[in-house]
Simulated scan of single mutants.
Amino acid sequence: MKYRTIGTDPRTRREVSVLALGAMLFGTATDERTSFALLDHYVEAGGTFVDTSDNYAYWADGGQGGQSEELLGRWRRSRGVGDEIAVATKLGARPLAPGTGFVDNPEGLSAKVIREAAERSRDRLGMDRLDLLYAHIEDRTVPLSETVEGFAELVAEGTVGLLGVSNHAMWRVERARATAAAAGLPGYEVLQYQHSLLRPRTDIPTQLFKEGSLGHAGPELFSYLDAEPGLTLVAYTPLLSGAYSNPDKRLPDDYDHPGTPARLAVLREIAGETGASVNQVVLAWQIGRPMPVIPLVGASSVEQLKESLAAVDLDLTEEQHARLDAAH
């Protein structure tokens, strides 16, 4: 396994594995026995960075979520896991009532919600301090200063380490970070966005953004990362839910454009050159980028996880990286 440091403050920064494990479906679609096996294998391979959210997976039973955090709490207790495994969770997108969702009825990012939701997450996970806590989705109904101060209070109290942000327009990320900096408060240091080799169109409205795919890590986000070297990108859905390798998985409509076949062709060429799978090439391309990117992978079997873990040791050449970057 390889590792990198996230965060800049010596009091809260963490060294984590370059491949993160997503626990979104643990405790629902992925049963407890399989989930424990996946977590055990990940840790045995040197993995130290597990990701969840307080709303995972509310859609499984029409409830409010919490199943993933609860399972991770049971796993941590049964294995005696301590601070050696960094656990990231998120708040803001938990439905306020069963039968609703994050679009029509989210908990939001008020100071009250931040405090109460973080406490519930700590209880479910069995942790005195959350290693990394994300603002999961935007809440434009609450003053940004209230959200910034709400997160900062938890850091000051020692119940949260690093702060992160996901699925926000970049201008909102910058404004929140500037607000925090002006007040001498900790700000977002980890950005979690969808990112893969294939690029979606950005002009198609989504559930979260009527303006287009603002939850995707595009040129604006990478420009921001270049200007702010202390930040880290955690890339969710890097393998597009199996669409690279499973012919039965259809790419979403926003990937239907001329650039997709061109990038797939180069990806398959390099997979052939390296003897690796296309999934492994995608992950190795992300891990080997000059800017810090940590792929966040899901798995429903140990074999799937082993394939992803093997990508950590796949070193693409500069020429192969350049070809992947240039394909369009």
Rank of each mutant, 00 (worst) to 15 (best):
V18P: 10
D203L: 04
D54V: 09
P98C: 05
Y193R: 14
P247T: 02
A265V: 00
E149C: 08
T8Q: 13
T89Q: 11
A182S: 13
A183G: 07
V302N: 15
A262I: 00
E157D: 07
A29R: 14
L154F: 04
P98W: 14
D104T: 13
D9W: 11
Q64C: 07
Q192N: 11
Y42E: 04
L197I: 08
G27I: 02
A176P: 03
L296T: 07
V281G: 09
L39G: 08
D315S: 15
Q192V: 04
P292V: 07
A45P: 08
W285D: 03
G184T: 10
E318N: 07
T206H: 00
E273C: 03
E174V: 13
R250I: 04
V160R: 05
V18K: 14
E228C: 08
H321K: 03
Y193D: 02
P258C: 13
R4Q: 10
S213Q: 14
R175N: 07
F222P: 06
A276L: 11
I114W: 01
T100V: 10
F222N: 09
L239V: 10
L267N: 09
D61P: 00
T232P: 05
E211S: 12
G164P: 05
D83I: 04
E153F: 09
V148K: 07
L132F: 06
A311P: 07
L208Y: 06
M1I: 13
K306M: 09
A217Y: 00
E119H: 15
S223E: 13
K210I: 07
E211N: 10
A311T: 06
R124H: 11
N55Y: 03
K210W: 01
V87N: 02
Q280D: 00
D226W: 09
D254C: 06
A29S: 08
L305E: 11
G187K: 08
D104W: 01
S196A: 12
V312E: 10
R201K: 05
A57F: 09
H257F: 05
D9P: 12
G242E: 04
R140L: 15
L125D: 12
R201G: 02
S300F: 00
A235H: 06
P252M: 00
S121Y: 05
I270K: 01
V142D: 15
T232L: 08
L198E: 04
K249L: 05
Y188R: 02
F26G: 09
T232F: 12
D315I: 02
L133K: 15
A299N: 01
Q304S: 01
W171T: 06
E174Q: 15
R289I: 06
T147P: 10
T89A: 00
F209L: 00
L208W: 04
D61S: 05
G158A: 04
A180L: 01
D54K: 09
S213M: 14
R323Y: 02
S35Q: 04
L133A: 11
L314T: 01
